[in-house]
Design a protein around this nucleic acid. Sequence first.
RNA 1: GAGGCUGUAGCUCAGUCGGUAGAGCAGCGGACUUUUAAUCCGUCGGUCCAGGGUUCGAGCCCCUGCAGCCUCACCA
Length: 506
Amino acid sequence: MPPPSSPSGHDSDSGGVAAALEKARRDKLARIAALGHDPWGRRFDGATPIATVRAAGEPLRRPPGEPPADDGPAVRVAGRIMLQRSAGSLVFLDLADRSGRIQVMIGKKQVGPEAWQLADCLDLGDLVGIDGRLGWSKTGEMTIFASALAFLGKSLETPPDKYHGLVDPEQKQRQRYLDLIHGEGVRERFMARSRIVAAVRQTLTERGYLEVEGPTLQESAGGAAARPFSTHHNALDMALVLRIALELHLKRLLVGGLERVFELGRVYRNEGVSPRHNPEFTMLEAYEAYGDYTTMMDLTEAIVAAAAVAAGTPPVVRWMGRDVDLARPFRRVRYDDLLAEVVGCDPADPGALAAAAAARGIDTTGRHPDVIKSDLFEATCEQSLVAPTFVIDYPAAICPLTKRKAGRPEIAERFELYVAGMELANAYTELNDPDLQEELFRTQLAGLPAEESMARMDHDFLRALRHGMPPAGGLGIGIDRLVMLLTESSSIRDVILFPLLRPVGD
RNA sequence: GAGGCUGUAGCUCAGUCGGUAGAGCAGCGGACUUUUAAUCCGUCGGUCCAGGGUUCGAGCCCCUGCAGCCUCACCA
């Protein structure tokens, strides 16, 4: 609620600098209202994006020192005041919308006494609409020479430092709206994210995939090895968990005959937080009947390529401290071959593997040879993969949802895509043998601690498989990590608008 | 969950050996019809993250807590 108008009153003792700064803005808000304008604005039609205006203004360019040219085409823009410079009877504004920034000049004589009074009530952060002529100032800056001023919304809070913006990462995340306004490249990064998601969706749709939505509330969470979040439905008095993966329901849809399906959605994992992990994150999973994991390799390359184009990513990105060349086709290397190459021991020899693992401090006592192998792989091979690389043909024992290679039951038809040491995608030739699937579920559950065995066997999924699921390829891509790569972001929190933060009293 | 770093005005940051809390920006008043983080003159502005302790005296030293960042672990 605006207080009664008291222009130039500045001896308020309401406590605190913030309150005094806000009072100055509320005083102006009252003056704006007194001038007959709605300080919260009204519908404002016909504004042109500033980037479009800038493109139109470029051919009119005049070098610095020339007399100002203020007779270009009439334009209308709307945006937020980022900078304000007054020079007597002239005011220069830097106005920003989501497409860009442009300078606006308001001259006392040019706009008339009423608009000039309104211009005197403007603060950094206010939203205004401008009508004027596009041109160039004497100092060689593209400028809209205002003829009319519409007030579209008051900012009552002091914006961040006009030069440095917000730099405190905590405040950038807690007040993302400010980060979007003032952060270097922040708005563009999130607009790139939006284009990436659209490109992923388009790539799949073009290939005949149907977008579907599975349940996020489930009786038990399956499809991945992670602890779920628990919740409760009141009316049904029913314990529920949030999904940790999309897999099991999408495969039911393959049984149902939808043949090519994908879901682009949020999954929730009750695990630790890190620069690469957020408790909720966006996952793509896609399944194609009658395909296999090589089908999914082609699809993965197509998706990454389309997303890179959409994001405007350069061919070589600087990511996680390395130069990453995104050229296709991506390298394909077999799991065992990579292990042999990096570790230098025979991957088929469990004794040699255990020795190599033990030499790197990995616990080997009483553990399955494939699990030891997997730990050794993670400790040595992952970091060696810089350019996008498909690691293919995994040890079967660590792949409970994957079809085995024909005639080689110890090898699973699976690949993971690594970039700069980080896992970006994971895909299988999907296991569709219900009896083997049930057996693998049982052995997997037997190995879990009691806390996690709440992730029970999904009997309905097994029943679906017994009805007959076509052989298929399936793919999962961590969208947040893809966005990180394509926007050269080193923390997942930089590509999630509102990452989970601990509450803080204020 | 463990270790390291950080927390000072609305924002960005200084703060020496433990001795009255500083600057720039923003704000307010004034000058300026071509400014570019405008400039110039004047002026207002503090729960030094919170709570304890040591000390004649703590922004600074000690302890506890909170939050963020980094590394590690679980995970993708």
